[in-house]
């Protein structure tokens, strides 16, 4: 296992009764990364976070935080980890501020000023003294994020942090996480359903399906840094398809209504043109398309749609 990774899992498995929620999860989150965990409902995202935060025990494999097994990270190191997992839950009969003070006391305590700062950060400065029972769902989620920020974390593990927030709230949370990452070098590991959130915020992403990572790495690489979808328009599509199927730099060549489609590296586009022209074909157009995260996600999850999955 890498000694540099802040979070690392190897062959992590978790079973609820007969249902496997994690089937050998492998991933590594480096320091300073904003790592997004994507996947449909039941893919195992929340289960992975539960294991990492010690709420549940895995059935096999390894999960490590700061190089230590997730279940036995020393308490003093856990002070550096801010967590929000699943729905927010607070003592409704206490104020937001009082809830934060009680929870912060378990992390060695924080000053009143720090509580004020955090409430300000999450946009609850004017409602901090109200009872949580009077909060809306969105406000509770903001308070949930606030508790993860006291005391100052080095690592944030967040389960759908922007879920349940209004559009402005979602933007504010993204900006806040970006700011924490940039200014305080906070590593962020978050699960989400919001693809644009990952595209805008994350440096790295893993797509989880049936408890396994099916695609992962730097977001730029996944979004066409390695391959583009190339639309090839020629006078003889059948012949072009034959040629490209045998050409090493082109993957998944297939016939389309208007021509041929292949996946290739961006720098291979000129080579493909040369090969086709060299074979005597007239090339009318070579149109490269970079795959969006949404297209990638849909392509990866397409085959999996009908497969029964674990309860998250």
């Amino acid at each position: 296992m890498s000694s540099e990774a802040v979070i690392e899992t190897q062959g992590l498995t978790k079973r609820y009764g007969r249902t496997w929620a994690l089937r050998g999860l492998d991933m590594a989150v480096g320091p300073g990364q904003i790592y997004g965990l994507l996947g449909p409902n039941g893919a195992g995202k929340t289960t992975a976070i539960r294991v990492l935060t010690g709420l549940i025990r895995s059935n096999g494999g390894q999960a490590r935080l700061f190089g230590r097994p997730a279940g036995s990270v020393p308490v003093r190191k856990r002070h550096c980890v801010g967590v929000m997992v699943e729905e927010p839950a607070f003592y409704g009969y206490l104020s937001g501020r009082h809830n934060l003070e009680l929870l912060a006391s378990l992390s060695g305590g924080v000053s009143r000023q720090q509580i004020d700062e955090v409430l300000e950060l999450v946009g609850l400065a004017d409602r901090g003294n109200d009872r949580v029972a009077t909060y809306s769902h969105g406000m509770r989620r903001r308070l949930y994020l606030a508790q993860a920020l006291v005391p100052r974390p080095e690592l944030l593990i967040l389960d759908e942090p922007a879920s349940g927030l209004d559009p402005r709230g979602q933007v504010e949370v993204r900006n806040l996480l970006r700011k924490l990452n940039r200014e305080r070098s906070v590593t962020v590991f978050m699960s989400t359903h919001l693809l644009h959130e990952v595209e805008e915020l994350c440096t790295h992403v893993a797509v989880l399906l049936n408890g396994q990572v099916v695609a992962g790495g730097p977001v730029e690489d996944l979004l066409g840094g390695r391959q583009v979808r190339l639309e090839v328009l020629t006078n003889n599509p059948q012949r072009a398809l034959q040629i490209l199927r045998g050409y090493h730099a082109a993957d998944e060549a297939r016939s389309r209504r208007k021509g041929v489609e292949v996946y290739c590296a961006p720098q291979a586009v000129a080579d493909i043109n040369e090969v086709l022209v060299g074979e005597g074909l007239r090339v009318f157009g070579l149109i490269p398309h970079r795959e969006t995260l949404e297209q990638l996600y849909m392509r990866l999850t397409e085959e999996d749609e009908a497969t029964p999955t674990a309860d998250n």
Partner: peptide, 12 residues
């Protein structure tokens, strides 16, 4: 209520 989870995700 879920508050046990809120406590257990703290360093305790």
């Amino acid at each position: 209520a879920g508050t046990l989870r809120t406590i257990l995700i703290r360093p305790v």
